[in-house]
Amino acid sequence: MDKFVTLNKQDLNDFIVKLSRSQPVMAPVARGCKSFVFESVDSAKAIALHYIPTILPPKKYFFPQRETLLTYNKTTPAWDPVLESRKMAIFGVHTCDLAGIQCLNMVMSASPQDNNYNARKEGITIIGLECNNYCDEYASCNVMDNHLPNGGYDLFFTELPDAFMVHVNSNAGERIVNDIGFFSAATPKHTQQLEEMRARKREIFKPEVKAGHKQLRGIFAGAFDSRQWDRIGERCVACGNCTNVCPTCYCFDVRDEINLDFNTGTRGRVWDSCQNEEFAQVAGGENFRKQRGQRQRHRYMRKFNYPVERFSRYFCTGCGRCSRACMAKINLKETIDALAEEKR
């Protein structure tokens, strides 16, 4: 399965309308003054084709902020697992976020498998969308090697002057192309336009930090005792934004909630964050990461060091969300630069 088709730009709306009649379609839409979120759409009119990374990544459809894991009944007694799966297509996923989903797929399929995540994943079709330009100055997708498509989607759209070049990458993708229609075979003109666009991209997308992709791990592995963590810790307010918006964070807290009958209830999970005061606190009150600097170090190590060992890949996609959302203007690119300088 590896073929290219095109969709005329004026047909995008009809495509989305028809697709949304076959299954819910989630796509980036504007929220407020300068933010975007993935939301259900039924036409292309609401979709922001040129958007900066959404407040929360599309991760929320695979691993919702809050979800029920089981329901229980104390008298029966019974514990019934809840596995939700909903058929949906996510349209407009940028390459950085595709990489984020790839990371989570690895984590959630490693033993022990996360059944809730995998059940949801089963129902989801992913339609990627290329960035012809940088979203903004917080991005570091080039150094993370995520500025070009690298799998992880069923269909992938690239905007050309009058059409979208569409890479068909799976049977599910092919079914959409055939069932929804509006697509034509790619012509040599379109192929050439795609090549031209990619050549322009090579001029625009350059490493965003003072270190190369391969050097990053070494920089972080040797930075455990760096002074930078204290400096960051002094500014950090532990709001948790950096972790809550990250496409590759997957920590959660499990909470039981009994109903007012005091007999039945649910067990659910809620996203948790290593930046929260009580995250590393254990019975007796001991907190293993009391300092905000220690927590920040942990977050960075969980992106650039530890996962390389376990999964042979960085768990930072370069999406820039953490820097955009940081209340204290702590910037991932600046942190990497400072650590790289220190190492020199």
Binding site: R31, G32, C33, K34, S35, V37, I55, L56, K60, Q65, R66, V237, A238, C239, G240, N241, N244, V245, V270, W271, S273, Q275, N276, E277, E278, A325, M327
Partner: peptide
């Protein structure tokens, strides 16, 4: 009583941040 910031819940609710406004 949770001992983390309101921002945590605010982000989970995907509100646009007031500071961005």
């Amino acid at each position: 009583v949770p001992d983390y910031a309101v921002c945590v819940e605010c982000k989970l609710n995907e509100n646009e941040c007031m500071y961005d406004k």
